[in-house]
Design a binder for these strands. Structure first.
Lengths: 207, 207
DNA sequence: ACATACATACCGACCAGTAGGTATGTTGTC
DNA sequence: GACAACATACCTACTGGTCGGTATGTATGT
């Protein structure tokens, strides 16, 4: 008997759909579960979204994308010492990750793995998010190279892609094993990798 | 019509199922497709395997597992310079990977991502394969440490896990982007990481 | 009064799995 | 070596449950 509030209802649906999809994947996500969990009926879902795919796209645009970029790109800022900034981001990003998230994997990567070879429309959208992420990281590496804080002999774009791949891979492994601990263990080698991107002559503070 | 040959039929089914699952994922894999593609009927499939899950398990045990370990662990052998051996394995493994494989991702990781949070039985089996892989790599790193070819201050287990995660992440990204080129680009930073595991004092041949 | 916001009952396609059959071996017996 | 007796391999048509989607209703705000 709550008052009507379409925007709120929509947001509730998005959040619930995000969780349902994150837990089960897009295909296995059940609209009935979302309806049940929110108290919103299926009719209402279909009032706000024309079909399941559209709901998925909205979740991707309005929940997953900000979720990922706010946590794994934007914290870097405009630092001219990207290695330190990225290391800090990785440390914080991982340690602050709630337990359940560790075992569910990265929501973006989950969708990427599940849908990229099946649904072209999703694939393109997911690829665009990865690209934005990659370009942000690559730009940071370039700034570091210009400031002399990053080795000049590495390719910023490839390195950015590898870093993203490594992070997603770590999340994926932790998901499979169902272990937050493994995720934290792997962060050490990840930091080793980042540190190896510093120029060789200058040692800097390696901590 | 061909003579009866249950073993051959079974193998044909396994191979076809592997492809169907690799292309579409386990849930989206259709037994009817497998039947159609092989000329074997659904009844025959259910003669050889009690249900779809059992078929999936057989594919995992008899096709996916050897596929992955033979390509990404066994080539290392017993070398006491694991970094060189692993770098060589990565280079070869990636360059020899057929075009379609690049865009379909690692079959093991695909299953891991799709099923680990859904089907516990699959998850356990997949985790065991990852563990075998990780232990093999960790043992190699330990041999390297004993021989003075690998930094003593890194954790072999965590490093092995990270390496696996990075490889799987690379494969996943390449799958999303649908680009073999990206996969090859990312191999350079991966080799940078491996090289950073060498002891600092001795420079060795970095090529 | 009218549109928007929601609810309920239902449809139909899809697909794993089954029932019950036929064809092709294999083994024993004389 | 031939023929029963049986076992294994495989086929076809069907079913039953699931789930995205729809048709049609009712409530609410302006």
């Amino acid at each position: 008997m709550t008052k009507r509030d379409p925007d709120r209802t929509r947001q509730i649906l998005l959040d619930a759909a995000f969780l349902e999809i994150h837990r089960n994947g897009f295909n296995a996500a059940r609209l009935d579960h979302i309806a049940e969990g929110t108290g919103v009926t299926k009719g209402a879902i279909y009032h706000h979204f024309p079909n399941k795919s559209a709901l998925g796209h909205a979740v991707l645009d309005e929940v997953v994308k900000p979720f990922v970029l706010n946590r794994w790109l934007h914290p870097i800022g405009e630092s001219s010492d990207p290695i330190a900034a990225i290391k800090e981001m990785v440390r914080k990003g991982l340690s602050e990750l709630p337990e359940e998230m560790c075992c569910l994997g990265c929501p973006l990567n989950n969708l990427a793995q599940e849908l990229s070879s099946v649904d072209e429309e999703f694939r393109v959208k997911i690829e665009a998010i990865f690209t934005e992420w990659q370009e942000g990281l690559a730009a940071a590496f370039r700034r570091g190279q210009e400031g002399g804080n990053v080795r000049g002999d590495i390719d910023p774009d490839a390195t950015a892609a590898f870093l993203i791949g490594a992070l997603e891979g770590m999340a994926g492994l932790a998901k499979t094993v169902g272990s937050r601990e493994l995720l934290l263990d792997m962060s050490a080698p990840a930091l080793v990798f980042l540190e190896s991107l510093r120029p060789k002559e200058v040692s800097k503070n390696a901590a």
